[in-house]
Design a binder for these strands. Structure first.
Lengths: 170, 170
DNA sequence: GTATATTGCGCAATTC
DNA sequence: GGAATTGCGCAATATA
């Protein structure tokens, strides 16, 4: 697809300095250019350093004025590269984070399943345990032949909820 | 706010098309502009549509050439807004995702703690159970006389749902 | 077909 | 002075 393009200079709310410079040697600084009918316009007029080799303090090192210069171009290119790299990384990171979410979600499900299983196991075991406890109680009385305690057939209809919930809130 | 701007053209390795257009009516399409001494250069010369009122198909509706026109400016502004919005959203989303990761991590820890607890409980219960089983076995043999058969009339109709729910809300 | 949303890219300011 | 981030605008593209 290839894209090449332009840039723009945006004299934003140019209060202080104005970065604005045109690239070309051919003037056309095209500053204001707000044709009639525009609702919003400003008073550009700030074109700061016209590197025209005049008498001002124009101080450009190499070729043209600060822009388009060898060094400038080099710096830009480096920065562009850095930017690209940085963005790539950023994107990668976001992607990784998303994936992490998915992994964690899976893990969570696994853990919950496990909890469910353990809970069930525990429940069964507790029931068994209770049952045996009752058996024991019977046995204690039965063999003695002279039980000193009432409550025989302990039909403990434990049809209630023997819920031993162990919720650990936090 | 208010921003106005210009463009420049950066002629990188412009192989494909060059969209390039200058804003002002004052020509100066300034395409290449690679001064001498540069290490990277190319064959610019591609300026496609120089809307210079020549014989080409220059077709501008309103004021100046396609750029700087009222409509153009309006569209740009809208797009800029949309871009800003989109980026904000994107950023927000990334942030949310990151937060989700944190939440899930916490949840995971909680779940693991719970598993640990349940496991321990289970272990204890199992041990107890085994111990009692042994005791029972001993009892069965020791009294010698009667015991002999388990399962008396302890009809513990545990028909309830002994649900030990461990709700872990969040 | 236009209007909005996304995306890649370059610039410039800022941070480190 | 250099790389890395970040906000921003442009234009191409995708989506509605």
């Amino acid at each position: 697809m290839s894209k090449r393009s332009q840039q723009t200079i945006n004299t934003e709310q140019n209060r202080g300095t104005v970065s604005v410079i045109q690239g070309q040697a051919s003037g056309a600084t095209t500053t204001s250019s707000r044709p009639p009918g525009g609702s919003l316009q400003l008073v550009p007029q700030l074109v700061p350093a016209t590197p025209a080799g005049g008498g001002g303090k124009a101080k450009m090192k190499k070729t043209s004025g600060d822009k388009d210069s060898d060094e400038y171009r080099q710096r830009r290119e480096r920065n562009n590269l850095a930017v690209k790299k940085s963005r790539m990384r950023s994107k990668q990171k976001a992607q990784d984070t998303q994936q992490r979410v998915n992994e964690l979600k899976e893990e969570n499900e696994r853990l919950e399943a496990k909890i469910k299983l353990l809970s069930k196991e525990l429940s069964v075991l507790k029931d068994l345990f209770l049952e045996h406890a009752h058996n024991l109680a019977d046995n204690v009385q039965a063999p003695g032949a002279e039980g000193a305690s009432p409550a025989h057939n302990n039909n403990n209809n434990n049809n209630g909820a023997c819920n031993n919930n162990n919720n650990s809130s936090q």
